[in-house]
């Protein structure tokens, strides 16, 4: 098991390397530091000297890959590639193009993201599974059919409509929630409840259908049929056989995305003014702050890889043979 995980780790490292190389090429070969400087310097009295000073302050005045003016080790290290990309590999995020320390901002913004994403995810999961169970229990009957129709309809509506509509009706017309904002000192739930609920609603269409198909597969297996034939009630079959067996694919799916929750929700955060990593990303894109975009790309890749490893562990843990031993 340990050697397996180490092997996987070694396999995943090149991926991070590649992601890093990819972003480096994208951002430094195609985009020039002069552009970044002008984008950040504003619009009054921007002179060449000012641009040069800006680049020097952020280390963008170095050569890309090889510093022929330096000597020895610094021929490699005094380059943009080393200063920006290799440092990034070591989780030294540096300073954003706007001039703030990215590391400090990330640490500060991860929490709001998590506070929004984790409850949304967990609640969504519970609601989706519960509804899917309900549909499976009433399979082929009108409730199931109605449920399927409703889920297709929800699936066919862009999430933006739920957010725009929900914010308009519940916050603006009914005064139930603050329209937007985030206040960790006060009662946080007042600010998070609306985005969480809307997030759950927007995801319920695809989610319920997905879990329904997983559970249906289990419900059609022989042991479930036998149990039903033996006179177990529908509810008991669900609880004793379908749900526990269905949990397996569900759980392995969950652990893969769990680390990515840190990245936050782009749309939710920017609609509801939650200062998390999602809105950080969107702001960085809008202001073309490539230092932040690069940092977020790398962070995302690391979390994704972490998710892959977690999935592997989950699979190993949930291996049928291991389970038999547990029973």
């Amino acid at each position: 098991m340990t050697t397996y995980i180490i092997r996987r780790l070694l396999w995943l490292l090149p991926i991070l390397l590649m992601v890093n190389l990819l972003t480096f090429t994208l951002f430094f070969v195609v985009n020039s530091p002069d552009d970044m400087a002008r984008a950040q310097l504003g619009n009054k009295h921007v002179t060449d000297a000012a641009i040069a000073a800006w680049k020097a302050a952020r280390g963008y005045d170095l050569p890309l890959l090889w510093n022929s003016e330096a000597s020895g080790w610094s021929m490699l290290s005094q380059t943009i590639f080393w200063q920006k990309s290799v440092q990034l590999m070591l989780f030294d995020f540096g300073v954003s193009d706007a001039g703030r320390a990215i590391g400090a901002d990330l640490a500060q913004r991860a929490w709001p993201s998590l506070w929004l994403a984790l409850p949304s995810f967990v609640l969504g999961l519970l609601v989706n599974i519960a509804l899917a169970l309900l549909l499976v229990m009433f399979r082929g009957q009108w409730l199931d059919k109605l449920g399927l129709v409703i889920t297709v309809i929800i699936m066919s509506i862009s999430g933006l409509f739920f957010i725009i509509g929900g914010q308009y009706v519940m916050a603006k017309l009914w005064h139930w929630f603050p329209i937007s904002g985030y206040e960790p000192d006060g009662d946080l739930w007042r600010f998070l409840l609306l985005p969480i609920v809307l997030g759950v609603i927007a995801g319920v269409g695809a989610g319920v259908r997905w879990y329904r198909s997983i559970l249906l597969e289990e419900a059609d297996k022989d042991f479930a049929r036998t149990a039903r034939a033996k006179g177990m009630s529908q509810w008991q079959v669900m609880r004793k056989h379908v749900l526990p067996n269905g949990m397996l694919p569900i759980l392995t799916g969950v652990v893969a995305v769990l680390p990515l929750l840190f990245m936050g929700s782009l749309i939710m955060e920017s609609f509801f003014g939650i200062p998390g990593l999602g809105s950080y990303t969107i702001d960085a894109i809008n202001s073309q702050d490539f230092a932040i975009v690069r940092a977020m790309v790398y962070l995302g890749a690391v979390l994704y890889v972490f998710g892959l490893i977690l999935t592997d562990i989950a699979y190993a843990w949930a291996d049928p043979r291991v389970r038999l031993g547990d029973d």
Partner: peptide, 11 residues
Amino acid sequence: TTLNAVPGVLL
């Protein structure tokens, strides 16, 4: 896997 590792929107 590399392509998937980069967050979609950012890519």
